[in-house]
Design a protein around this nucleic acid. Structure first.
Lengths: 134, 134
DNA sequence: GCTAAACCTTGCCATAGTGGGAAGGTCAAT
DNA sequence: ATTGACCTTCCCACTATGGCAAGGTTTAGC
C-alpha cells in the first residue's frame, strides 16, 4: 500500500525540517509533490528516500547545487560512476582547502593566545599583533 | 602632517575593499569618517590602522561582532588582557569544532570515494550509501 | 455540533559577509 | 570642455536556514 506522509511526518522521517523540504521543492531540487484536496503536500516512500538522500548529502557538506547533480545521477540508470566520483573529489578538495585555512588560523591564533597572559593587565600580544602594520 | 586618504586609497592601504569599508561603517564597526565638502570619505592614519586591524582579525576568522569587541578592547587603555584572551579562546574553540566537523566529512567521504570505481559503469557506492536509510 | 490544539498553506523578513551594478556627482588631466 | 577615474547612495544577489504572521484544515474531546 502507498503510505503517504504529510510534510511534518516526512520531516520527521527524513531528519529534515518541513521548512527546508518546501524550500528544496521551491528551488527545484525536488519535483512538486502531490497534494490533498486541501493543498497539503503528500510524500510517498520513494520521495522519503530522496529526502533522506538529501539529508545525508548535506551532512557530508555537499551544496544544494551538488546535491541537485547527485540526485540526477542517482536517478539516471545510464550514469557513469566517474561523474559521481568526480563530484565527490571536487568536494573533498574544497573540504581540504577549508581545513587547511582553519588550521592556519588555529596555528596563528593559538600562538597569539599563548603569548597573552590573560590577566588583569592591559598588555596583550593578540591586540599588538592585530594592530601591527602587516 | 595629517595625510588623509580617500576610500579607494584606504582600501589599498588596508587590504580591504572600499565596499567593505563602507559596510563596516554602516554596521557600526567603524565610526563615521570625516568627509570632504563633496561628501568623499577621508581616513587618517589612525583609521588606516583600524582598517588593518580589522583585516587581520578577519584573516583569523573573527566575526564582525568579535571584531567590534576586539576594537573596543584595543582602544580601551583600561582593558584586561583576560577579556581579549577569552575572545580568542572562544574563537579557537569554534575553529576546532569546524575543523572536527570537516574532518569527519572528509573521512566519511574519502572512504566512500575510495569504494567507487569511477569508471563508465553506473554502480557507485557513494550513491548507494547516500540512498541507504540511515 | 462546537471548540481547541495541532497541523498545514503562502509570504515576507532575517541572518553573515561579500560582491555587483545602476544612477549620479566630483576631480584631475588633457 | 571633455574624458576617465574616482566617489556617493541604494538596491539586489548569493547560501542555507530559521522565524513569524495570517489564514485554512483536520482531529480529538466535550
Amino acid at each position: 500500500m502507498a503510505t503517504l506522509l504529510t510534510i511534518g511526518d516526512a520531516a520527521k522521517a527524513s531528519g529534515l525540517s518541513a521548512k527546508m523540504i518546501r524550500h528544496y521543492e521551491q528551488s527545484g531540487l525536488l519535483r512538486k509533490s502531490a497534494r490533498t484536496d486541501a493543498g497539503y503536500r503528500l510524500y510517498n516512500s520513494e520521495q522519503i528516500n530522496q529526502l533522506r538522500f538529501i539529508r545525508q548529502a548535506r551532512h557530508l557538506g555537499f551544496s544544494l547545487a551538488d546535491i541537485h547533480a547527485l540526485l540526477e545521477l542517482w536517478q539516471n540508470p545510464e550514469r557513469e560512476s566517474r561523474a559521481v566520483k568526480q563530484l565527490a573529489q571536487q568536494h573533498l578538495a574544497e573540504i581540504a582547502a577549508k581545513i587547511a585555512e582553519l588550521q592556519h588560523m588555529q596555528q596563528v591564533l593559538t600562538a597569539l593566545a599563548d603569548s597573552c597572559k590573560g590577566d588583569g593587565s592591559p598588555h596583550c600580544n593578540i591586540l599588538n599583533q592585530l594592530a601591527k602594520p602587516t
